[in-house]
């Protein structure tokens, strides 16, 4: 017999469970609001449109200007380099693991990729600054080019390596989820294995691969330590990846670790940049999720 006392105890527990679940919502709202209100305050002092499209970023001066376009451009450049490294290598690795390697070999390769994914980004940052950046300077030298010691290229390459496991692991899952009947159908028509992969398997898995790529993109945009340690501080609107550039995350860190007053525009610019970062990564994540949902619906898969 269930007593009323037992019931009220159950109710308290259930209330606690719901309360715990709501924390995640509170966190998101908390992040949004903590960024949003500071950003609004910033935009009351400085022009919103100049922030988005202005080309001069000069904090800490009389008549400081906050045009973030060079910062966005630097983020874009480093991110594109990262994706140029990570997408071919990541998808190629995924195809190798899911289509060509034996089960045994795959069971070894996947944990190795997980090691790469588990390396803290501060470590990648040190590696970029200590080894990759000087290497790029000397390699550029052989070709008669000058590269900065904090070049966008060095950051981009290391960031690319950082997101390889994300793309490879998710793509591998998706490729393996493509039903075997598709493989058999193509092979039975006299297609080679690689033709089957390129024309049938990869297109079938494309929503999932796109989703993986977007997730990698979102990680690259939000990545902080690699760029803080290996990229420049100078907003630089340039197409040359050998020059130093700065990113949104670098500027956020720089304006918050300095000795500015909390309500100075210098500090609050960090929140304006944070708002942009929040919106962009949120949108990317939403698209990524909808892509993977599309893939799941197509093949009625629940395990991804």
């Amino acid at each position: 017999m269930i007593t009323t006392k037992g019931n009220s105890k159950e109710n308290i527990i259930r209330f606690l469970l719901i309360f715990a679940s709501v924390i995640s919502i509170i966190t998101t709202i908390g992040i949004l609001f903590s960024i949003f209100f500071q950003a609004i305050e910033f935009f009351q002092l400085k022009s919103f449109w100049y922030f988005l499209f202005g080309t001069e970023w000069s904090p800490g001066q009389e008549n400081s200007k906050f045009g973030a376009l060079p910062i966005f451009a630097g983020t874009f450049m480093i991110t594109v380099i990262a994706l140029l490294v990570a997408i071919p290598v990541g998808v190629g690795s995924a195809i190798y693991m899911s289509e060509y390697s034996s089960r045994l070999r795959r069971n070894i390769l996947k944990p190795i990729l997980e090691i790469l994914a588990g390396i803290p980004t501060v470590v990648y940052g040190f590696f970029a600054a200590l080894t990759i950046a000087p290497a790029i300077v000397s390699i550029s030298g052989w070709f008669g080019l000058t590269a900065a010691y904090n070049s966008a290229l060095a950051c981009g390459i290391v960031m690319g390596v950082m997101i390889i496991p994300i793309i490879a692991s998710l793509s591998d899952d998706v490729l393996r989820a493509v039903p075997n009947s598709q493989r058999n159908a193509s092979l039975a028509l006299g297609m080679t294995h690689s033709e089957t992969i390129r024309h049938i398997i990869v297109p079938s898995a494309m929503p999932g691969i796109i989703s993986a790529g977007l997730l990698g993109l979102s990680k690259a945009i939000g990545e902080t330590m690699i760029v803080v340690m290996a990229a420049g501080l100078r907003p630089n609107l340039s197409w040359n990846p050998l020059e130093d550039m700065t990113t949104v995350t670098v500027r956020i860190v720089d304006s918050l670790v300095g000795d500015h007053a909390f309500d100075s525009p210098d500090t609050m610019s960090a929140f304006a940049l944070g708002l942009v970062l929040f919106v962009v990564t949120l949108v990317l994540n939403m698209i990524s999720l909808s892509q993977i949902r599309k893939f799941k619906a197509k093949y009625k898969i629940n395990t991804l």
């Binding site: 039903p179 009947s181 598709q182 058999n184 159908a185 193509s186 039975a188 049938i200 297109p203 079938s204 197509k298």
Partner: peptide, 8 residues
């Protein structure tokens, strides 16, 4: 094959 398997 047993199950119709047209390509997508």
């Amino acid at each position: 094959f047993q199950q119709p398997n047209p390509f997508p």
